[in-house]
């Protein structure tokens, strides 16, 4: 299976290498705007007991690892519907699981690169957090695993780019704003908070933030992400297998 996984992964890395300058610019735009608009505007306003910029930056890492991992769905759709390269994978002597793991690994790499860029922006803005915490990067990687696996699964189910865009609008965008990126979910009404706990991004933001602030990690957040990532892997495998009509 490893050869199939590496072939799929390397294909994505070839594409990433070619597009990296443009992608890096696009990855930087939103975090920069958020840091300028919210970080400066909110100044020393405390959120979660910290200056707002310190609160925001880990949230942006979590959000970005989600959106960039999810973004592989668009690339898979382009490969399926436009380049028709998915046929090449179907005709190749590889197991569907190899395709799944190759794409997910590429999604995780992309998400972590985007996270690095946000960290660099944070350094530029003088935000004081624990940038090198292994638990921070583990949380970002697990979050990327969750959303990359869902992206692979859903990319197999949608029938067009429009379907994909609709899913992003209805699922990812609301989650980005409600999953603890921009404000502590404790600020929400009590009845709403349990619902926010259902979102993977809430757990990712909480785990990244705790690690960034040097707090002890909450095992539950990591376990939730790991559990969801495992379910996503299985779901993606099933969906790729079913992509044969």
């Amino acid at each position: 299976m490893l050869r199939g996984t590496s072939a799929v992964f390397i294909r994505e890395m070839y594409i990433l290498r070619r597009r990296l300058p443009k992608l890096a610019c696009s990855w930087a735009v939103s975090p920069l705007l958020y840091m300028v608009a919210f970080g400066y505007a909110m100044g020393d306003t405390l959120a979660g007991g910290r200056p707002y910029a310190e609160f925001l930056l880990p949230g942006l890492v979590a959000m970005s690892s989600m959106t960039q991992a999810w973004g592989i769905a668009s690339d898979i759709n382009i490969a399926r519907f436009y380049w028709r390269i998915f046929e090449e994978f179907q005709a190749a002597p590889i197991h569907p699981a190899a395709y799944v793991t190759g794409e997910i690994a590429a999604g995780v790499v992309r998400a972590l690169l985007a996270s690095c860029l946000i960290m660099a922006i944070g350094l530029l803005f003088g935000v004081d957090i624990n940038y090198l915490s292994p638990m921070l990067w583990l949380a970002a990687a697990l979050n990327a695993l969750v959303f990359a696996s869902l992206a692979v699964a859903l990319a197999m189910l949608v029938k067009s780019h429009a379907d994909q865009a609709m899913l992003t609008s209805f699922v990812i965008t609301p989650m980005a704003f409600l999953g603890g990126t921009f404000f502590p979910i404790e600020k929400l009404p009590g009845w709403a908070q349990p619902f926010m706990d259902l979102l993977p991004l809430t757990h990712a933001a909480r785990a990244v933030r705790a690690a960034a602030f040097g707090q002890p990690p909450a095992a539950a957040d990591y376990l939730v992400l790991l559990g969801l990532g495992s379910c996503g892997l299985v779901l993606a495998g099933l969906c790729v297998g079913r992509a044969r009509d």
Partner: peptide, 12 residues
């Protein structure tokens, strides 16, 4: 396999 679609990876 040579598909009827021109299915090279256009970005590569």
């Amino acid at each position: 396999v040579v598909s009827q679609h021109l299915n090279l990876d256009g970005d590569l």
